[in-house]
Design a protein around this nucleic acid. Structure first.
Length: 715
DNA sequence: TGGATGACTTAGAACACCGCGC
DNA sequence: GCGCGGTGTTCTAAGTCATCCA
């Protein structure tokens, strides 16, 4: 139970509440938004337009040729072509034979300049190219200006590739490999059957992986132990193999203690030592953590190769405990441009391959040995390449908003279809839309944990109740989704859906597929026909973002204090996290920290009643004396009461927020599902500093949204 | 059509760091 | 100066979805 992070009853209720209100909101707001959409179309007033308008204004002086202006306006009007289609979808655009789509604010001459630039000219020292139009800013402090400009490169104001290529020039230094294995000191012993035993280096290394995890629940699991032991034996010498035949006779405790002591020693290191390590990390970051992509220095997301260790699958993963082998340069494929300075493999080694594929975004890749899948080194979320994709994702979701009514009407109609496959497709789509379920690809049995999504739901995952409590046609879902997180929900559905489900269940065993005539490929093909670029996951993005927007409208009170507004924001965020089933294990220190906070609240309450008493006394005093001094005293006491009240409220808000957040993870939705422009607009509208909502990393990731959304932005 | 593969996004946990109160 | 607790960052597993190929 614990393992699957089953939620308590209270939480289920809470979800139910949110779901319910969510669907109500949906219907209510759909009407509202339908009207608004019409309105918007009339005025051609989408936020992207506004954004472009903003930049159009800003760059006005740069654009002198009337012709060019007309062309820009043409582009603005042609927003569907320009903004909303994926680069792959607009391959054969006339005039654009260079693979770029210009941003509205760039005239032809600037584009020419860009095209003429030779990407080969870039190097590690000369990449900080100031933005076009700012070239003349270089003065005495040219370097500084240049740096600042580059640090805030607004890629969203520039051209996009439309020929499917992701870059023209890519140069990097390759990945950082895991440090080689350092054998244990002689005094740290491994025992077999109570007797010390010296292990060969390869066997010892794998043993240390297990020893490091000794305190973890993993090492108590049979599958983990079995897989580990099998792989460990492969690393042993034949002699070791003949001796070590039973994992239960192995004693890793001395090794484990040694690592704990090491970790403790690391914590106890002097400031200087810590500083030295920090500097070394910084050096590595500076050397390997960045690449040059099309004239810009971009941060790499994961430049370190995953170190060897034991595979930690989630849930009941059949491969947990297997040895994740060490990755060597000979396993690595490097991707960079032909004309770049290729990364050098460590001395005495060579890369598996060096290729120059600009249709992909990765810099290096290798095949891991557990599932045989490919792992990549890619750019940081703040990079142009990730940001563009993110922005595009939300634009697709916004397009869905425009036609979601039609799509809903269609699937409702399809519930009545004569064809079973169409009915199944329509019911599945209803679940994906209403409950924000994932698509649910098929998985190879025995290769991964048994988890499902919508299309892969089995009969055993749902229960039907014609009547439950005071509700009719209730469906109970109970299954493990991504990361083996349990999805449990009871929802009333429409009669037709219920009847269809009864039909789908007929003559089936618990382990049979609920939607036996459906898979994600069929579903997505259908969605593609309904809207260009529509897939199952777009519904999750759309429903998450629209829910945030509605909840913010509903919960925010302009008279509230900033902490109260932030609580409203967190509650809106929470509604989305519940919808998307983003859970977390309650923090280990939760109860304790909650108690500490409660103590603070109690203390503050005592302070408040004392301050109130003092105020009362001061008032009485003033009533008796009527002098200035006593009047001043009353004012002071009143202010003190006010201050304490505010402090108390702040603490109470904090406690509420924390309690409500106990098992809910807000980060995932904030980072992946919520159109950041909604949050930015909300901040601007209610005077909330953006730092209160997004931390530094998040601000970097969403720089495009922070720059372009104004207070009136509508998703 | 369906399986395999590759490229990419989404996910929670673990770890690192930093500020605050004592 | 130290330890605690909370937040931010990193890590890497586990999804989605498009494309290729038989």
């Amino acid at each position: 139970d614990k393992e699957h992070r089953h939620k308590d009853h209270k939480k289920d209720k809470e979800r139910e509440k949110f779901k319910h209100s969510n669907s109500e909101h949906k219907e209510h707001s759909e009407k509202k938004h339908r009207d608004k959409d019409k309105e918007r179309l009339k005025h051609s007033d989408s936020s992207s337009d506004k954004h472009r308008q903003k930049h159009k204004d800003r760059d006005k002086d740069k654009r002198r040729e009337e012709k060019v202006c007309l062309w820009v306006v043409g582009m603005l009007l042609n927003e569907k072509l320009y903004m909303y289609r994926s680069p792959a979808g607009i391959k054969s655009e006339p005039e654009e034979d260079n693979g770029f789509y210009p941003s509205p604010q760039h005239n032809k001459s600037s584009r020419q300049e860009y095209d003429d630039e030779d990407p080969k000219k870039s190097s590690w020292n000369t990449t900080k190219r100031p933005k076009r139009g700012n070239m003349n800013k270089k003065g005495t402090d040219g370097k500084k200006v240049k740096k600042e400009e580059e640090e805030k490169w607004k890629w969203w104001e520039e051209e996009r590739y439309t020929d499917g290529s992701k870059w023209r020039f890519l140069e990097h230094k390759g990945p950082v490999f895991a440090p080689p294995y350092e054998p244990l000191p002689g005094k740290v012993k491994f025992y077999y059957g109570g007797k010390p035993m010296k292990l060969s280096a390869p066997a010892e290394e794998v043993a240390t992986f297990f020893a490091k995890m000794l305190d973890h629940e993993y090492t108590t699991k049979d599958i983990f132990r079995k897989n580990f032991f099998k792989d460990w034996r492969k690393e042993m010498t034949s002699e070791e193999k003949s001796v070590i035949t039973d994992l239960n006779k192995c004693d890793f405790s001395e090794m484990s203690e040694y690592f704990k002591a090491q970790s403790e020693a690391r914590k106890q290191m002097s400031k200087e030592e810590k500083q030295k390590i920090k500097e070394e990390n910084e050096r590595l970051l500076q050397e390997y953590g960045f690449c040059i992509m099309d004239n810009h220095k971009e941060r790499i997301g994961n430049f370190r190769i995953e170190p060897p260790g034991l595979f930690r699958g989630r849930g009941d993963h059949p491969k947990m405990g297997m040895l994740k082998r060490r990755i060597r340069p000979e396993d690595i494929i490097i991707n960079c441009s032909k004309d770049s300075k290729h990364p050098k493999p460590p001395p005495g080694t060579k890369w598996k391959e060096v290729r120059h594929d600009n249709k992909v975004t990765w810099l290096a890749s290798w095949t891991e040995n557990i599932q045989g899948s490919i792992k990549y080194i890619m750019l940081n979320p703040s990079s142009r390449i990730k940001g563009e994709k993110d922005w595009q994702k939300y634009e697709t979701a916004r397009r869905l908003k425009k036609c979601v009514d039609r799509i809903r009407a269609q699937y409702r109609e399809d519930w009545k279809s004569k064809e079973m496959r169409i009915r199944q497709r329509a019911v599945a789509l209803y679940f994906i839309d209403k409950l924000a379920l994932r698509a649910g690809n098929e998985k190879e049995e025995g290769e991964t944990a048994d988890t499902v999504g919508c299309c892969s739901l089995r009969v055993e995952h749902i229960k039907l109740y014609p009547k439950l409590d005071d509700q009719e046609y209730v469906v109970e879902f109970d299954f493990l989704g991504k990361d083996s997180i349990r999805y449990y929900n009871k929802i009333p559905v429409e009669k037709r859906v219920f009847k269809n489900l009864q039909l789908f269940l007929e003559n089936k065993q618990p382990e049979d597929d609920l939607f036996d005539r459906l898979n994600t490929s069929i579903l997505n093909k259908h969605l593609q026909e309904l809207m260009d670029g529509l897939t199952a996951k777009v519904f999750r993005t759309y429903n998450a973002s629209i829910t945030l927007q509605q909840q913010l409208k509903e919960l925010t009170c302009s008279d509230d204090s900033i902490p109260a507004k932030i609580l409203s924001y967190n509650r809106a965020n929470r509604a989305v996290a519940i919808l998307c089933n983003h859970q977390r294990a309650p923090p280990k220190t939760f109860e304790k920290s909650m108690q500490n906070l409660q103590n603070k609240i109690d203390e503050k309450q005592n302070q408040l009643s004392a301050a109130r008493k003092q105020l009362k006394a001061a008032k009485a005093d003033h009533k008796a004396s009527h002098d200035d001094k006593s009047k001043k005293a009353v004012e002071m006491k009143r202010k003190a009461v006010q201050r304490i009240e505010e402090q108390l409220m702040k603490l109470q808000v904090q406690a509420t927020d924390r309690e409500e957040n106990k098992q809910i993870a807000l980060g995932t939705s904030k980072l992946n599902y919520l159109d950041p422009r909604i949050s930015v607009a909300w901040c601007k509208k209610f005077g909330i500093p953006i730092e209160k909502i997004y931390n530094k990393t998040q601000r970097e990731k969403f720089a495009w949204a922070i720059d372009m959304a104004d207070k009136d932005y509508e998703f």
